[in-house]
Simulated scan of single mutants.
Amino acid sequence: MKIISFGDIHEDTSNLVKIKSDLETADLIVVSGDLTNCHGKAETKKVLDAVKKYNKHLLVQYGNMDKPEVDGYLAKEGINLHGNGYMFGDIGIFGCGGSSPTPFHTPSEISEADIERFLTNGYNKIKDAKWKVMVCHTPPRDTATDIVRSGMHVGSQTVRDFIIKYKPHVCISGHIHESRAKDKIGDTVVLNAGMFRDGWYIEVVIDKGNLSAALKSVA
Rank of each mutant, 00 (worst) to 15 (best):
I4C: 03
G7A: 08
D8I: 13
H10Y: 04
H10G: 02
L16F: 10
I19Q: 07
S21N: 15
L23D: 07
T25I: 08
D27N: 06
V30D: 09
V30A: 08
V31Q: 05
D34G: 03
L35H: 04
N37A: 02
C38Y: 13
H39S: 13
H39I: 00
H39C: 07
G40I: 07
E43R: 07
T44R: 05
K45M: 09
K45W: 06
K45A: 11
D49W: 10
V51H: 05
V51W: 09
V51R: 06
N55Q: 12
N55D: 08
K56F: 04
L59V: 12
Q61C: 01
Q61Y: 02
G63V: 00
N64K: 07
M65Y: 11
K67A: 02
D71A: 03
Y73G: 08
Y73M: 09
E77F: 01
G78Q: 13
N80L: 11
L81S: 02
H82Y: 05
H82N: 13
H82S: 05
G83L: 03
Y86H: 10
Y86R: 08
Y86Q: 06
F88V: 00
D90W: 06
I91Y: 08
G92H: 01
I93F: 12
F94G: 01
F94A: 01
F94N: 03
C96F: 03
G97N: 04
G98C: 04
P101H: 07
T102W: 13
T102Y: 13
F104C: 06
H105V: 15
H105E: 12
H105F: 15
H105R: 12
T106Y: 00
I110R: 06
I110G: 02
E112C: 07
E112M: 08
R117C: 09
L119E: 09
G122R: 05
Y123D: 02
N124Y: 10
K125G: 01
K125P: 02
I126D: 07
D128S: 07
K132S: 02
M134E: 10
V135F: 12
P139F: 13
R141D: 14
D142S: 11
D142F: 13
T143P: 03
T145P: 01
I147K: 15
S156Y: 10
T158Q: 14
D161H: 06
I164G: 00
P168A: 05
I172V: 15
G174I: 06
H175A: 05
H177K: 12
H177W: 09
S179T: 08
A181E: 05
K182P: 00
K184I: 15
K184Q: 15
I185V: 11
I185K: 00
V189W: 02
V189R: 00
N192Y: 10
A193H: 05
G194I: 15
D198W: 14
G199L: 12
W200N: 15
W200E: 12
W200C: 12
I202T: 11
E203R: 03
E203W: 00
E203P: 00
G209R: 14
N210A: 14
S212K: 10
S212F: 02
S212C: 01
S212P: 00
S212Q: 04
A213C: 11
